[in-house]
Amino acid sequence: MSDEIKPDLELDLKGLLCPLPMVKVSQRIKDVPVGGVIRAVATDPGAMADIPAWAKSTGNEVVSAGKVGGEFVFLVKRVK
């Protein structure tokens, strides 16, 4: 299902150490319009908790988060 969503911005966060993936998503969310989606790919497992926690506390939405191979793929929607 998540494959149907076309992201407005692709973020390559591979190799970044936590909490940097969360920092980057947080910094770049302003670059997509409200309702827009960022697709972020990280390799640090810490991101699996960090990015959803950031989204919840800032009122944004993680549309999907999952492990693909050795990578963690997130679809984050800007809500406000």
Binding site: P19, M22, V23, D50, A53, K56, S57
Partner: peptide, 11 residues
Amino acid sequence: MLGQLADAAIF
């Protein structure tokens, strides 16, 4: 930014 990161940690 720092505020958001702090809130995420508390959340």
